[in-house]
Amino acid sequence: MSAPVLSVDDLSVEFATREGTVHAVRHVGLDVHAGRTLAILGESGSGKSVTAQAIMGLLDTPPARVSSGSIVFEGTDLVGASERTRMRINGEGIAMVFQDALSALNPVYTVGDQISELLRVRRKLSRSAARARAIELMERVRIPAAARRVDDYPHQFSGGMRQRIMIALAVALNPRVLIADEPTTALDVTVQAQIMELLTELRRENGMGLVLITHDLGVVAEVADDVVVMYSGRIVERGSVEELFQRPAHPYTRGLLRSMPRPDREDDELWAIPGAPPSPLRAPGGCAFNPRCDAVVDVCRTDQPELRLIAAGRHSACHLSQEVFDGRA
């Protein structure tokens, strides 16, 4: 595999809050490759969005603080980069699609204005050229009657159409990396599939690296190439999708797979990992997953397991990773 376009290494983010320091992200490492889809999978609160915000430079500092690590995009470390560097890379190098398109689009401008403004400022297009390109982009993301709808405001579109418009904005400058943070969570199932298909298509066409943040295993199975599983701010498992789904090396991943509804096992009632993910302020000692783990041993309550290589391209952070991987625990 060629060198990654975006490489996050040892990233830690903490928030200063009234109740204490929240370690939202700890020692996270990711590589995003051109033309591939990396899924970040995890329950709500596991630190997926904070990771994305750190990459995009959207964290408010304070209260947030990047306490360790680097985010290297095409040779430039974005941690502590100047506003000028950020302004150049955001949109053109890395772009992002948010979960809630309605609130991520400015309500007082037409969608056409928002797309053309971007093109006029960054691509120095004339007013008419930018408008024409905006319509093209809206057609590209399959907005019906784009030429007419270009003058509509965001609230005049349906949820799925708005998400398409945000995608059009995000790909307007041909970014090398596109981060999509739960882009379909707010949408109904058929629309979800269409949006995922569109993102995959654009990734292939533009050769972008796609980072897909989701809590939906079905989506991961369908569109991702690689996956990292996050739990309580840490990466607990990493690998290619086929291998990881075939042979998980972490009890959490194994539990997630078991809780996935499967058409070939209709007799099974829906199973879920017992308990809930810990609040980052009250994470248990040792392995954060230990209160919910079905393979827990004594050492899990005292020692934090490291993310270790267990097979080619496979990493897991579990004291029993080899046993789980081999199906012995």
Binding site: M56, G57, M87, N90, G91, E92, A104, N106, R122
Partner: peptide
């Protein structure tokens, strides 16, 4: 504090804009 300000920043808008 509106999310669309983050949306603009994610597209590379600086403070002035």
């Amino acid at each position: 504090a509106m999310p669309y300000i983050d949306g603009a920043r994610a597209l590379g808008a600086g403070g002035w804009r």
